[in-house]
Amino acid sequence: MKMNTDSNVYTIVYSIVLVVIVAVLLAVVNQGLKARQEANKLLDTQKQMLVALNQDIDNCDDPAALYDSLVKDTVMCGESPVIVFEVDGQTKYMLRLHGQGLWGGIGGYMALNDDRNTVFGINFNHESETPGLGGEIVTEKFRSQFFNKHIKDAQGNLRSIAVLKEGKQAPEGQEQVDAWAGATITSTGVSDMLAANMEEYRAFLMEKTEQCCAQADKKCCTDQACCTADGGCKDGPCCDQCSCAKDGQCCANCSCQDCQCQTKCKED
């Protein structure tokens, strides 16, 4: 039976059949390979962290096992995870970095020493930066510039590390590394990423408390504690951060839970 391939009915039926077949095929492939892809992705993440810990990945037969042997704990700072490792008897804190490059997202992991100040190691990755230019942020040459740099200045303020074109000078107190020649925007992206992520982890880095506030005006971390303006937690009753009932004024004796006054204002 010779079908009229130009008839409307045929065209519509054909399209439907084609789309259904393709959809099924793609779904099957995706499901079938999903497990492997997830495993690959996890392994890749672990390898990145191991690189940030200056472990020799290339000569390692089983990175997953190495990772498991080094990792100790995960601490949350707001919504950002800090992964605690123990390398050669010393505690290292792994911060996750994420930001924007030239063509797409960039990210990485930064390992800090116990003092929450000195950079022990760092690793970068990117989605779609230009190979040979922005893509070179993953190289040893770029990364090694960060080793033993400090994210805080001499007075203990959180400054992050600047990535600047060769010859430019960072503001007083802030340490810097050289940008990659020819990859200006990607390098700026790295610089901005570091600054933004240091802010994200501010409370953890400034050691105000074991558990930290993600954002000062949003939530309190523990009972009876309130967030201060720079992301730390303050013990004890806090009135300046709570909203209390009387005329918009805080009463002297209110206590905080989730930044709401739990006790109605009493006349003193």
């Binding site: 391939t5 130009d6 045929y10 054909y14 084609l18 393709v22 793609l26 492939v29 390979l33």
Partner: peptide
């Protein structure tokens, strides 16, 4: 069997499917 009127679209769909599969693999 491809209807003439939608042949470019059909070609695109086939190619897209193949590329996606290669990418997943």
């Amino acid at each position: 069997s491809i209807p003439m009127r939608i042949r470019i679209i059909v070609q695109l769909v086939v190619v897209a499917a193949l590329v996606t599969i290669v990418s997943e693999i």
